[in-house]
Design a protein around this nucleic acid. Structure first.
Lengths: 255, 255
DNA sequence: TCGAGTAATACTCAAATCGAGAAGAACTCA
DNA sequence: TGAGTTCTTCTCGATTTGAGTATTACTCGA
């Protein structure tokens, strides 16, 4: 609210204490499956349950807090100092998802959590050492019964990711800096959970201005199971896809 | 984060105190212009500046806090008790926008603000009495130099509103319970800031399943400046528009 | 009461786009 | 070497789009 009138009359004791945290829904594609980074909780409440990585916000922006948690949990970059370069994490796309503040979402106290959504190219398994040993990637369809309201947060994050693939070049955030149209199609297939018509997808991607641009090069060899060498592309400068790549319409999504 | 490990080691003195507020971007259409509800600040900082209505979160959900602030500022419904019926406000569509938590966004202390976006049919001017006298509707293109980071919040809210008109039936939240296709088109025109082809819009709206359904009735008389009586419709049961109603493509939005 | 202006609604038509399928060429692995 | 896979390009009919036109039914002011 930010109103001086309120703040002048504001006595912290008039209000319940509120803690602000960030939770991160970090998505990547491993072995062709959309996966999310989870941590195992050691203590009550929800001991033994899995949860999204997250933590208290310090003297930093919300986004820095999310990046810091991600770095700490994955062991990537190792930098706890969020103002520094992030190493492997510098290619991670991070955006705010939503904020969750139901009064009883944490049984101990009022916790308002700002959830972030991260998209990463295939990352190494979180390395041991530091506290990252507790973190691991789980295919999203096996990520159930999470602590707190994290099932809901994950579901919201997945829906956001699926929707953004339609009208933004977000899929390139899941690939390396150079990729083939086929790899891009597999990203869509993994996130949407359904196969796409290869020919139409190819035509579509190349017809959207600024989605991808050719590097001129091709892959060194054909696919694992055969097929010719594929042309390589990198992400273009489009921020929105026009026209969009729409998911196959499913009636139950509409009503 | 919600991790017991952190909470067990958590000492409030280790972290700066954080206040949680809600700010509301309430939009309506008055005299054919998209307008936002603002309040005038009386005290420092930003005394004399206009700001979005908002306030501290109490023992309530974030959404209840947003509704309460809206009711208090507009004087509508008058109910400060957010659990009760909201009177005029019960037809308001409310959704979370984004959370703003830059450390210096409020010069006095760390304030994390959860912004909400409200869409309302043309509402009466906020009534005097209560503290609502401070609130007023302002056409969005005249809402500049707001306090704090409210210019940014408003801009984000407008972009969200414009985007959601494309693929959701949100436009009906700005109309009365019954409306004509022409009224609906004027909502789009006001929010997008550009006129639409009447014939194509008509065809499109009627072709999207579940967007509108006919009431069978027509308006009692023609338009103010002539024209035949129009058929009346009410909102249908679609939650998403398939196919979507896309804004005229502007290149500068894409790159 | 008439005439000008306006709006609702329906139609036309060419261009763009889409989904489904097919085909050829290049490559893998066994 | 042969079977199977994938990349890439086409074809074709159906759908959707944008732009324009036409008809009809109103309002308002002269």
């Amino acid at each position: 609210m930010d109103e001086a009138g309120f703040l002048a009359a504001y006595d912290p004791r008039d209000y319940p204490a509120v803690a602000v945290t960030v939770d991160v829904v970090a998505l990547t594609i491993r072995d062709g499956r959309l996966s999310v980074l989870l941590v195992e909780r050691g203590t009550s409440p929800f001991a033994g349950h899995r949860a999204l990585p997250g933590g208290f916000v310090r003297e930093e922006t919300l986004e820095q807090a999310a990046l810091r948690e991600l770095a700490e949990e994955t062991g990537l970059a190792g930098q706890v100092d969020a103002s520094r370069a992030e190493g492997d994490l510098d290619r991670v796309h991070l955006e705010q998802l939503q904020t969750y503040g139901q009064p009883q979402r944490d049984p101990r106290m009022r916790v308002v959590s700002v959830a972030y959504l991260a998209f990463a190219p295939s990352l190494p398994e979180p390395t041991a050492g530091s506290d990252a040993a507790r973190a691991f990637w789980v295919p999203v369809d096996e990520a159930k019964d999470l602590a707190f309201d994290h099932d809901e947060i994950l579901a919201d994050g997945l829906e956001r990711a699926r929707a953004k693939l339609e009208y933004t070049p977000l899929a390139t955030a899941f690939t390396g800096p150079e990729f083939t149209i086929g790899e891009l199609r597999q990203v869509y297939a993994a996130v949407w959970g359904e196969d796409l018509h290869a020919g139409n997808f190819h035509r579509k991607v190349l017809s959207v201005p600024g989605f991808v641009e050719s590097t001129g090069a091709t892959t060194a060899r054909g696919g694992e199971r055969g097929g010719p060498k594929a042309k390589l592309y990198r992400a273009g400068d489009a921020r929105l896809l026009h026209p969009a790549l729409l998911r196959p319409t499913r009636e139950d999504r509409v009503r």
